[in-house]
């Protein structure tokens, strides 16, 4: 099933907080999970409400993020959008894991040599 992902960004990482992200990445996947296109959205100012609005407008199926307020987590789920939260790491790594159906809430994707 084709899907659109929304990932709030901070540099090349999944933004630490949904409400403080000034940019979001939209990733379009086809039914096989292959990436069709990417587009990034710059926000006039960081806002959870604005990200939720974009998610609804763009018919996003999955939001991948790190910290998110319970209120917005509940809202997105109520709108039948899957939220994979507490994901820490580079955004490319998160997308790759998602495509491999291996991304779970709480995944830490940073490479830690001595952790």
């Amino acid at each position: 099933m084709p899907a659109t992902l929304l990932i709030p960004l901070y540099r090349d990482e999944v933004a630490p907080r949904f409400d403080l992200a000034g940019e979001a990445l939209l990733v379009h996947l086809d039914a096989d999970g292959a990436e069709l296109s990417r587009s990034s959205v710059l926000l006039a100012h960081a806002s959870s409400e604005e990200l939720c609005r974009i998610a609804l407008e763009e018919k996003v199926r999955v939001v991948i993020c790190n910290g998110i307020d319970d209120e917005f987590w509940q809202y997105l789920r109520w709108k039948r959008i899957e939220v994979i939260d507490n994901v820490m790491g580079p955004v490319d790594e998160a997308i790759a894991r998602f495509r491999a159906d291996a991304l779970r809430p709480g995944d830490i994707l940073f490479h830690r040599s001595d952790a």
Partner: peptide, 19 residues
């Protein structure tokens, strides 16, 4: 054990962390 070695902004997620 979970967050050892990762940037503090991801684990603490404080409002001052990003900007």
């Amino acid at each position: 054990a979970e967050v050892r070695g990762i940037p503090c902004r991801h684990a603490l997620r404080a409002s001052i962390c990003l900007y």
